[in-house]
Write a protein that binds this DNA or RNA. Structure first.
Length: 531
DNA sequence: CTTATTAAACATC
DNA sequence: GATGTTTAATAAG
């Protein structure tokens, strides 16, 4: 209760209804109409709940499973058809800031879902609370964000990218068949449970297992920082998360900030050197981040960050200018130069890669590019292709996000081709316009209009180019990696297409950017209000 | 086979 | 003790 934000738990929620509701796949910015008419059902529920109250555990409904059957045949749970995950999503969505602490989620449940009404006083060991926690951790659709308040627990937000159902990393990663079993070994290894046989304990044993400890780490103060970074983790792919987290320790403790922060760090990490295998995972991470940045709430706090280490901010600014960027975008951009230097100094690696890549033209390193982009649109294209190669589309994403949606910087206007490409390959369910917006949002590939021969584009578009890239790709990176990227991209595209196609909710009215806009214009980002 | 719900072991804070 | 993460068992589609 000490929460200033005040839980904010509107008593809405549709107690009933929504037998499955698949359409709302992309829960993020969706205001979602929310049919309120569930009243009657709610009441009914109430009755049940009340009855249950006495007995305490009251899982009557579920136990036999028979009880649930009643009524039209649905209500898979005592409280209705919604899953815990859905309930949690609703809870979070209902919050003005789109984020809640665990306790607040509990609160919301108790307040909004009749069934839990009387279970508010249960302690954390209560089954349902355990389940809530479990769901939060399990699904990638929920992300944990460090809470600045000292004693407070983390904020839980919805992953803009929509973790979908999968918590899983991209299936690919581990294709080591039975290794799945082995995988478990990795973790803390100890787990205590299976204590038998002294484990090899090992420590670093496995051959390629993960990276040693990633070299990067620019040092800088921070230790605890790492903590902060960790806050955002892509679940399963512990590796990636770890790395990313550690990689860029710098940064003040801007609670909310790290969301974006991570992105850049990831970018660097991937580009910097090692990490061929994780690319996919990283991408995944980034993907989520990318979308998230534009979220208003997050940005809010941003400004404060300005001071000290903007390093990652710089890149971040690139990608999020669409929302807050405009408002105080300039201020953010300015520091670029500085940040640029610093970042470059830290990561000279890209250079190497670059060299390896056999570029035909000498573009700046990815880092540079990121920053430069907003400033020098033209150059942007060039490197973008290469960068794409390296980062596997991340660059593209960031770029697009920066400009496309709300239209802002001039860069992208240069080649609108991107859109056209996409449709050709994929079956479009949506109108071209939507396509565009979607593209900008999610499809890393289409993002980069570098039509021409840029392997990247082609690759994403069609499988053919493999051979092509082969020439270019150094053995270091090798095809595998490339493939992974590819796969990823496709994945995203397909996903986005399918998903968006169905639920389709992103409409950015102002699609099709007419290269005519002042600077600061639409201000859709008021929503945020630091509490 | 996949998704969900539950329970429970652990780990941190 | 509250939070978080993970595993595992089990039911349902």
């Amino acid at each position: 209760m000490a929460e200033p934000g005040g839980a904010a738990a509107p008593p809405d929620i549709d107690p009933d209804f929504e037998p499955q509701s698949r359409p709302r796949s992309c829960t993020w910015p969706l205001p979602r109409p929310e049919a309120e008419a569930g009243g009657a059902a709610g009441a009914a529920e109430e009755g049940a709940g009340g009855a249950a109250a006495g007995p305490g555990r009251a899982e009557g409904a579920r136990a036999g499973g028979a009880a649930a059957a009643r009524k039209g045949g649905s209500r898979r749970n005592a409280w209705g058809n919604q899953s815990y995950a859905e309930l949690i999503s609703q809870a979070i969505e209902s919050a003005p800031e789109k984020r809640l602490t665990l306790a607040q989620i509990y609160e919301w449940m108790v307040r909004s879902v009749p069934y839990f009404k009387d279970k508010g006083d249960s302690n954390s060991s209560a089954g349902w609370k355990n389940s809530i926690r479990h769901n939060l951790s399990l699904h990638s659709k929920f992300i944990k964000v460090h809470n600045e308040a000292t004693g407070k627990s983390s904020w839980w937000m919805l992953n803009p990218e929509g973790g979908k159902s999968g918590k899983a990393p991209r299936r690919r990663a581990a294709s080591m068949d039975n290794s799945s079993k082995l995988a478990k070994v990795r973790g803390k290894a100890s787990r205590k449970k299976p204590p038998l046989q002294s484990a090899p304990e090992s420590s670093a044993d496995s051959p390629g297992s993960q990276f040693p400890k990633w070299p990067g780490s620019p040092s800088s103060r921070s230790n605890e920082d790492s903590d902060v970074w960790n806050t955002f983790r892509p679940r399963t792919s512990s590796n990636a998360s770890t790395i990313s987290a550690r990689l860029s320790p710098i940064l003040t403790e801007q609670d909310d900030l790290h969301d974006e922060e991570l992105l850049p760090s990831l970018v660097y990490s991937s580009a910097s050197s090692n990490v061929p295998p994780t690319v996919t995972e990283e991408l995944e991470l980034i993907d989520g981040l990318n979308l998230m940045s534009p979220s208003s709430s997050v940005l809010s706090t941003q400004q404060s960050a300005s001071s000290g280490q903007i390093q990652r901010d710089s890149s971040f600014s690139l990608q999020s200018p669409n929302a807050a960027g405009q408002t105080f975008g300039n201020s953010l951009f300015n520091p670029v130069d500085i940040s640029l230097q610093s970042s470059v100094s830290h990561f000279s690696a890209p250079q190497t890669l670059e060299a390896l890549l056999t570029p035909s033209s000498p573009p700046p390193r990815d880092v540079m590019m990121t920053q430069v982009d907003p400033v020098l649109p033209q150059t942007g294209n060039r490197m973008s292709s290469r960068t794409l190669l390296l980062l596997g589309g991340q660059a593209a994403q960031s770029k697009m996000s920066s400009g496309n949606p709300r239209g802002k910087p001039a860069e992208q206007q240069a080649e609108p081709v991107g859109a056209s490409v996409l449709p050709s390959t994929l079956p479009m369910v949506t109108s071209p316009q939507n396509t565009a917006s979607i593209t900008s949002l999610k499809a890393p590939v289409s993002a980069q209009p570098v039509q021409l021969g840029s392997p990247v584009l082609l690759s994403s578009a069609s499988p053919a180019p493999l051979g092509l890239n082969q020439d270019r790709l150094p053995t270091d990176l090798d095809i595998d990696m490339y493939m992974e990227n590819l796969e990823c991209d496709m994945d995203y595209i397909i996903n986005s297409e399918l998903m968006d196609g169905e639920g389709l909710d992103f409409n950015f009215e102002p699609i099709l950017p007419t290269p005519s806009y002042p600077s600061t214009s639409q201000a859709s980002n008021h929503t945020w209000v630091p509490s």
